[in-house]
């Protein structure tokens, strides 16, 4: 049996010195290639959970396993490398370094992930893969040399998708990537995202508060069902 793309087991975490905000997640799993919409209001611990899943902050007791690897068993540097290799991240907005070119933004995670870079270069050179993904998601050919700060929000979000998908990481984590887009653009964006996701065979964990997105996903989970955020004494 293959390991799930993501498995959280008895996860507990408390931010040091932040009003005693704590988070518990007894059990959650995301299968290989599965797409899950995680619904939750702001303040419900979404950002903390995503930081834990990405290994940017280390969990306390409990386990975060990505593709069978326990993040807690890795040292900080190895966790950062593991994130670069295995997880594509899309933020709500302000995804890109505004001063860097689109190409540099897309290639940034590969700088820290040699295996992912090798996978991206398989079909030829890395830039060919960048061009292919940009074209597939409907970005114009000449966009790669443009500074990211000059793109429209919709274009920036699509560049973020290309950056998350390049080198085929097995897990994509997205934090309300459509909230900055209008309804029409949202739909087109999701269609392109899912199209590329299936082509790459990656699993998707998308956090949102918008229930209307649910039909596109394999599964919808309410954050409150898997996570509790008890206030502990500061």
């Amino acid at each position: 049996m293959t390991d799930p793309a993501l498995a959280l087991t008895d996860l507990r975490f408390a931010w040091p010195g932040r009003d005693g905000f704590a988070l518990r997640c007894p059990d959650f799993a995301l299968g290989q290639g599965e797409t899950v919409l995680l619904l939750g209001e702001s303040g419900s611990g979404k950002s903390t959970l995503l930081s834990l899943i990405c290994g940017i902050v280390a969990a306390g007791p409990g386990q975060v396993r990505i593709g069978g690897t326990d993040l807690g068993a890795l040292r900080a540097g190895a966790r950062d490398r593991f994130r670069a290799e295995g997880i594509g991240v899309i933020f709500q907005q302000f995804n890109l370094l505004p001063y860097a070119s689109v190409a540099d933004n897309i290639l940034l995670p590969l700088r820290f992930a040699p295996q992912r870079r090798a996978r991206a270069a398989k079909g030829g050179c890395v830039m060919a893969e960048v061009q292919r993904l940009c074209a597939a998601i409907g970005l114009p050919d000449d966009i790669v040399t443009r500074p990211a700060g000059r793109l429209s929000v919709g274009q920036q979000q699509r560049v973020a998708v290309v950056r998350a998908l390049i080198g085929q990481p097995p897990l994509i984590v997205a934090d309300e990537p459509t909230s900055a887009l209008d309804a029409a653009t949202q739909d087109a964006f999701l269609a392109l995202l899912f199209g590329q996701l299936r082509a790459a065979g990656a699993a998707l964990l998308m956090v949102s508060h918008d229930e209307r997105l649910a039909p596109r996903f394999d599964r919808t989970v309410h954050l409150r069902d898997i996570v509790t955020t008890p206030r502990v004494a500061a």
């Binding site: 933020f91 820290f112 950056r163």
Partner: peptide, 16 residues
């Protein structure tokens, strides 16, 4: 800080 968060999310270590 936003820029730093992007670097971190892309796999940059704090040392980077």
């Amino acid at each position: 800080r936003r820029e730093m968060a992007i670097w971190r999310a892309m796999g940059a270590r704090p040392a980077t």
